[in-house]
């Protein structure tokens, strides 16, 4: 059994078929990439897994459990964490508080004991802090620990969002364009982190990424999507040289994306 199984899923927005009869399997321990031109439906696949959208047909299972039966806020409970393409942080809160929200699924105390700040609450807070501090060390976020998100540069926010997802100690991490808008060095860092996340933290990664350089360095498996349907699937090299993938890019977005496929 694969960790994540998407089976013939279709989603329509009015007349537009955003995801068209898509099937894919992500195995435990893999780093899996979804690629495709703009508007292909990659983010929509993430939003389906997060239960923000409900497909017209098909099934999604995680570790054998039916994801489609869950409410959006129950999905993280399975051990699925994600980032967003347009960065969705809690911008009035500090970096530390953002990362601590990542621990939400591990909370154990109730409202009354929290109001009274009972010893159990303090012990729990210490444990959360410890887990978050590990993430801060991994991602070198020490200088920003108590900064509010609203004043941070874009590159740092991207890392904080990754950190918030990691703080929840997920089994599956969904990264929507982790390197978009990052500088060369920042992209390099992102590459090491994804390697670390897979090797040392044993987290399976499903990512959307346009930067084929990064994809071929960190991913074992790639699925190319166009107009919501699967074009090709295989190793990065196989997918990059697949005729229909080349056609999809060169035919529609030759100027903007052509260079990246080759």
């Amino acid at each position: 059994m694969s960790l994540l199984e998407i089976d013939s899923v279709t989603l329509k927005f009015g007349g537009l078929t955003a995801v068209n009869n898509l099937s894919m399997k992500v195995e435990e321990g893999q780093v899996f990439a979804l690629v495709g031109p703009n508007g292909a439906g990659k983010s929509t696949v993430f939003n389906l897994i997060s239960r923000f959208y409900t497909p017209v047909s098909g099934s999604i299972t995680f570790d054998g459990k039916d994801v489609l039966k869950l409410a959006p806020h129950d999905v993280p409970q399975l051990g699925i964490a994600r980032t967003f393409q347009n960065i969705e942080l809690f911008h009035q809160a500090t970096v530390l508080q953002n990362l601590l929200v990542g621990r939400h699924r591990h909370r154990q105390t109730n409202m009354i004991s929290q109001m009274l700040h009972l010893p159990s609450v303090r012990a729990e807070e210490r444990a959360h802090r410890h887990a978050v501090e590990e993430v801060i060390d991994l991602l070198d976020l020490q200088p920003y620990r108590n900064s509010r998100i609203a004043g941070l540069p874009y590159g740092v926010r991207k890392v904080v969002e990754l950190g918030r997802a990691l703080a929840s100690k997920p089994r599956l991490l969904l990264l929507d364009e982790p390197a978009s808008g990052l500088s060369v060095e920042e992209t390099q860092n992102m590459r090491w982190w994804i390697d670390d996340i897979r090797r040392h933290m044993k987290i399976t990664v499903l990512m959307v990424e346009h930067d084929m350089g990064l994809v071929s360095k960190v991913c074992d498996r790639v699925l190319a999507l166009a107009d919501g349907a699967k074009l090709a699937e295989g190793t990065p090299a196989e997918v990059q040289s697949h005729p229909s993938v080349i056609e999809a890019y060169l035919g529609t977005n030759a100027v903007s994306k052509g260079g990246k496929v080759a």
């Binding site: 997060s50 994600r82 967003f84 969705e88 942080l89 809690f90 809160a93």
Partner: peptide, 14 residues
């Protein structure tokens, strides 16, 4: 605070 700043990612964090 999570609900105040972003309902979407609050949900995504459980």
């Amino acid at each position: 605070a999570a609900v105040r700043d972003s309902e979407i990612s609050a949900q995504a964090m459980g």
